[in-house]
Design a protein around this nucleic acid. Structure first.
Length: 464
RNA sequence: UCCUCAGUAGCUCAACGGCAGAGCGACCGGCUGUUAACCGGUAGGUUGCAGGUUCGAAUCCUGCCUGGGGAGCCA
């Protein structure tokens, strides 16, 4: 008798036909009649459930099996029978069904539709539903695909630090990391907290970006990427923001903004192809129940050239649409969400790179263009989700960088090592940040970031 | 943080100033191939919390709490 997984059986049903197999899993549904019944069993190795048929005359504990509830863990043994013409390609004719873990009658997951809000409250049980089973398997595959994409191109994977003393990046509000007594912290002569007595002897926080460290490695390995957790203490309450999320930050040397966009576009297309190929049942499920037309949309993106426009062109384009905006598009102001959605959903109907933003509204490390007014920045906007990538060519000229830091009130001493990258063999280089959950939302059609993170951390919520 | 909508049975929802209901789930029974099975029955409620208006409040008003959506910040 062969202990099998649903994945093995689905992939190779023919060779298991008429053979005895044992499957361990959890009951999704159990329907009994007078002398026979059906269990839909999911063992976690495949999106699909497998049908177990049990009959009074072939199993000894028929009444007990018929009473097994949804959520129970069972071990089922029986013969695999091909069922051409039925709704499922094969089923298991049970000879024995053993209860491994009971599920009392108050098990909250039913074989019916639940709201996402309710399922968030039972995040320890929601991976057992179709939707979250699909989401989190795809999340796993997507993470692997990202590594594979960069590794195939010879990029070096860098684990940038999670605890850092950099607070000059301006990427967001910081979570403090400290071992000081919160009630009676040591004070200095000015009466403020003396971080010299803290664990690291200085103020430290959780990282908001690995970019600056990635630049260090890019100027040694040429092509590198980070992929790790990122923390922002922003009080933002939207379906696209979390306090803890994962970010991919490639950084490439001897490269400019166009190389950067080429890389981003190639990566997005690679990831789509990977999922369409490796996550077929999951993508079919999203296509049917989460976002109708998702697969066609993704297929079109693979076949399309992403639009590439400048910020100035974007402003012109927005003025031309005659659409009423709450905030009119105007040079010098950042694009509003309504502007971004208009561009990607109404004007271009596909992903759009916007480049050349005014330097005042962008970060200090972005390379100043020859016009002195704009920087070599790029955002990638996609329909439905909005901004999923933000990146730039980095300012490699020491004098310009110093001037920028002065303009943005950034302390040069703290970033002495960052400045030295420009002093010793500095070259043009570029990179971007990709929100892992953002692209996962985009590729699955799931509209809320809290539903693509196993245990989401958001303002006022850190359950599980 | 601002704007907005919503909290009714375990879940999804109805009742919108006059007896608090249905479907699913649970429990009991029926059914010879079901597949979110079907059919009959039973139990299940401080209508988010605290005040107020009214003869009477799930329903109207005020405050608070929780959740959704939009905005800002960003990935």
């Amino acid at each position: 008798m062969h202990k099998a997984t649903v994945r093995q059986l689905v992939n190779d049903a023919d060779s298991f036909a008429e053979k005895e197999v044992m499957i361990n899993g959890w009951i999704r549904n159990n329907r009994d009649q007078k002398s026979f019944g059906f269990i839909a069993l999911n063992d976690g190795t495949h999106f699909n459930t497998i049908q177990i048929v049990y009959e009074k005359e072939f199993i000894s504990n028929y009444d007990r099996v018929a009473a097994m509830r949804v959520g129970s863990a069972v071990s089922a043994t029986g013969k695999l029978v091909l069922t051409p013409g039925a709704r499922q390609p094969f089923e298991i004719k049970a000879s024995e069904i053993r209860l491994e873990g009971d599920s009392p009658s108050d098990y909250p997951i039913q074989p019916k539709r639940h709201s996402r809000e309710f399922l968030r409250e039972v995040a320890h049980l929601r991976p057992r539903t179709n939707l979250f089973n699909a989401v989190f398997r795809v999340r796993s595959l997507l993470a692997f695909a990202i590594h594979q994409f960069f590794q195939e191109k010879g990029f070096v994977y860098l684990q940038s630090p999670i605890i850092t003393a950099n607070d000059a990046e301006g990427a967001g509000e910081l979570f403090r990391v400290t071992t000081l007594d919160p009630v009676h912290p040591p004070l200095n002569d000015h009466g403020t907290v003396d971080y010299a007595g803290d664990f690291f002897g200085k103020k430290t926080n959780l990282t908001v970006s690995g970019q600056l460290e990635a630049e260090v490695f890019a100027l040694a390995f040429q092509n590198v990427y980070t992929f790790g957790p990122t923390f922002r203490a922003e009080n933002s309450n939207t379906p696209r923001h979390a306090a803890e999320f994962w970010m991919i930050e490639p950084e490439i040397a001897f490269a400019d903004l166009n190389d950067n966009m080429d890389l981003a576009e190639e990566m997005v297309k690679y990831l789509i192809n990977y999922l369409l190929d490796k996550a077929e049942p999951e993508m079919d499920f999203f296509n049917q129940f989460v976002d109708k037309g998702l697969k066609e949309k993704l297929q079109n993106i693979v076949n399309a050239e992403f639009a590439r426009i400048t910020y100035a062109e974007a402003i012109d384009e927005l003025k031309k649409t005659n659409q009423k905006f709450e905030y009119p598009a105007e040079w010098g102001r950042d694009l509003q969400t309504e502007h971004e959605r208009c561009l990607t959903e109404k004007v271009y109907h596909k992903p759009v790179f916007v480049t050349g933003y005014p330097r005042d509204i962008k970060a200090f490390y972005m390379r100043v263009n020859d016009d002195q007014k704009t920087v070599a920045a790029m955002d990638l906007l996609v329909p439905g989700v909005g901004e999923i990538i933000g990146g730039s060519q980095r300012e490699e000229r020491a004098e310009v960088l110093e001037q920028n830091m002065a303009n943005f009130n950034i302390n040069r001493e703290d970033l002495w090592w960052y400045m030295e990258l420009r002093k010793y063999g500095g070259v043009k280089h570029a990179g971007f940040g990709l929100g892992f959950e953002r692209i996962l939302m985009y590729l699955t059609g799931v509209g809320n970031i809290r539903d693509v993170i196993p245990f989401p951390r958001t303002v006022n919520s850190c359950e599980f």
